[in-house]
Design a protein around this nucleic acid. Structure first.
Lengths: 123, 123
DNA sequence: TTGCGTGTGAAAAACCGGTGAACACGCCTT
DNA sequence: AAGGCGTGTTCACCGGTTTTTCACACGCAA
């Protein structure tokens, strides 16, 4: 089910120590283009803030995988995670709201209680 | 894909003093992937809580061996065991229920009266 | 029958996640 | 400089889920 970068192995992995992954992601009608700082639904841009886009990108690059808040926080925020920090939750909430406004009914980000979140275009 | 180590018994034992064993377990149609916080039946994920998964993992990592409640409690709960504590029994019950719902008829967790439980993929 | 060990439903307690809102900060405009 | 705006961070409340604990039922052996 790893639909993405499945047949076309054009993934460039240059994340040795810091740089974010700029590979685009296509998930149904949603398209994420980190290199262009853009996320599109049916070709129309979603208006996401920098953090929102970074979090969405990180999730989408790890589609189908449950990511802990710590993983997400470290890669998106780039600093150490304190377990009382709710930033990830807040941003997931904002992403859900914007995604739902653009694609009502569709669910992209799934909660795994006690662990974290998983990006999956459908379920 | 790196993780697989398919049929090869490439068990890595690095549990020196704290970390739980994240080695995957394959038991017939049941597959346990602690590193991904997941247990699968025929590839479909079982929805287990973190405690349930931890207990199942501990049992499965010691398949065919009778484990006392004390052993199980100490390694899954990480604190001292009081012999009046029924937590292990309760969670074994919940695991059995979920496993039986996914694989009716199959029995995985066997009771050894007066001692504890044993994980064994078959009768 | 009594005692022990286990299965299990269900109540109680603890924990976790969704979210509105307040606040801080930088930037832009007037 | 003052105000407004957009973004990011943090907090608190609340409802739902998970974990823990309790109580009773049942089977078995003495």
């Amino acid at each position: 089910m790893e639909g993405q970068n499945g047949g076309a192995p054009s993934r460039i992995l240059v994340e040795a120590q810091g740089g974010p992954d700029l590979t685009p992601v296509y998930a149904g009608r949603l398209e994420i283009r980190p290199a262009e700082h853009a996320a599109l639904v049916d070709g129309r841009p979603l208006s996401l803030t920098v953090r929102e886009l970074a979090l969405l990108t990180e999730l989408a690059h790890n589609a189908e995988r449950v990511m802990t808040r710590e993983e997400l926080y470290r890669s998106v925020w780039g600093r150490d995670y304190r377990k009382s920090d709710r930033s990830v939750d807040v941003y997931v909430g904002r992403l859900r709201a914007k995604l739902d406004r653009a694609l009502p009914g569709r669910r992209y980000i799934h909660t795994h209680t006690g662990i974290g979140y998983r990006f999956s275009p459908e379920a």
